[in-house]
Design a protein around this nucleic acid. Structure first.
Lengths: 255, 255
DNA sequence: CGGACTGTTGAGAAATTTCAATGTTGGTGG
DNA sequence: CCACCAACATTGAAATTTCTCAACAGTCCG
């Protein structure tokens, strides 16, 4: 079943915590479906369970007083919605489905109980959280210091890489069902400018992006435009595995 | 000794994990001093120990190919440098001291060993990490969607609040030893614009900021300009404690 | 006193936003 | 199958924010 992406992504670190993953995943017996636009977590509400994205795409977002919103993270298949969940205070932001999505869920108590019998389980959650934090840091860099063009390119690099890790990219192509409005909220750019930047990226022969389907025509070029270095994304446990190259990507020259 | 701020800040959640904190802190027997500008962690290097900031101020930052840099987090007294440390992959960014700073350190192995005897210790680290992540999310919002003016105001609100939690603010004033260049790197603005925005904030009677000393003249006004809501910062464990009001701040009306 | 770092100022240039209108697409009901 | 509607994408032009450049002032320290 759709657990594929999850296993692929979570197992990427090699074998050192394979048992813990097995145990952890086995707790996720429940399924939950969300329609596009539906909300999973409301700001200020403590969510009582863990969730793993099986299919679709969700966004963590914050609404601003002036009516605009900022997407603060995108959740792809294989992602744990809130790895620090059972230790975290109430979330301050919303999590909503950008497209129809499927989740697997498990109550916090179940996981907490498992953590007792499998003391290395927290380590595994902490690792996932650390990768999520690294992504978040890149978003700060993105919004803070990169030009609109590089910002868009970087977001696309990140998403492509993450989808590739989950086994959801083939032949430099993947589904990327984000409207330009969503891209705008993710990058902090205006919708109009997103549109123009995308045209530029297409004109430069780097990508195609149409009706939710992304094709990367020039991965090294895109990485270069973005200042993208995938190291922060996939880093498995102690050693560093080969980069996403094995998933059908040429890897850009070390710089 | 300087452990004051630490105890104050880390203990803020009330008593539920007090024992774990005791045990955790007792492992930090080593001290380390950094001069201003000195580097604690270099990108790509796995750091083998935990560190807690006792005094001073450090910055996590990423350098960009074009020579600019983005500060991705500021570490204040009481902060754990990398709560997910022993489960995290190698850091992708640098951590450096902005001013002369003191740290307490403990080897990862020591903490890992303690985690075995005190199974709730990871939960405590995860909680700290969750708060750090919430701050990071606010930075994304800040850089992505707020005007320069609001952005600066928000950063100041955040720093003042965090310093207040650590017991380092009195009478609406605190030390804030950040150069305008550092503020620029933290907000993603140009140095020149930082200067102008600060002048505006002063002219509007919200703050004074001179030679490393901040005074907040109009906390509600500043929060308002920033769109600041302290909820994400201090949230202690399950229940929510009173906001920073008890630390000498008027709290803005709920809204 | 000199030098280095930090803060300040002005003016023109550039990137990005806003506004407002017009295509395009995909689905739905007649 | 067509008409229609809503959501999404695209375009142009003016307005605004922010940046860059370049100069100058203040402060700290040896």
């Amino acid at each position: 079943m759709a657990m594929d992406a999850v296993v692929r992504k979570l197992g990427r670190g090699g074998t050192s915590l394979a048992d813990e993953w097995q145990v952890f995943l086995s707790a996720f017996s429940r399924r939950r479906h969300l329609a596009a636009g539906e909300t999973l977590v409301r700001p200020g509400v403590r969510c009582g369970s863990y969730a793993i994205v099986l299919a679709g795409m969700l966004a963590r977002s914050e609404a601003l007083p002036d009516g605009s919103r900022q997407i603060v993270a995108l959740l792809l298949p294989g992602d744990i919605v809130d790895p620090l969940g059972f230790a975290a205070p109430a979330t301050d932001h919303a999590v909503g489905a950008l497209v129809a999505s499927t989740l697997a869920t498990a109550p916090h108590e179940t996981i907490a109980a498992l953590a007792c019998s499998h003391p290395r389980l927290p380590k595994l959650l902490m690792h996932e959280a650390a990768v999520e934090a690294a992504i978040l840091r890149q978003w700060v860099v993105n919004c803070g210091r990169r030009s609109a063009y590089a910002r868009m390119a970087h977001l696309i690099c990140e998403l492509y890489s993450r989808l590739a890790v989950a086994g959801l990219a083939r032949h430099h192509a993947c589904k990327l069902p984000l409207t330009q409005a969503a891209l705008s909220d993710a990058t902090g750019l205006s919708v109009v400018h997103v549109n123009r930047v995308l045209q530029q990226l297409r004109a430069d022969g780097l990508i195609s992006l149409k009706s939710g389907h992304l094709v990367v025509h020039d991965w090294p070029g895109l990485c270069d435009a973005a200042g993208f270095d995938s190291a922060y994304l996939d880093s498995p446990f102690p050693a560093r595995s080969e980069p996403v190259a094995h998933l059908g990507l040429q890897h850009r020259a070390a710089g």
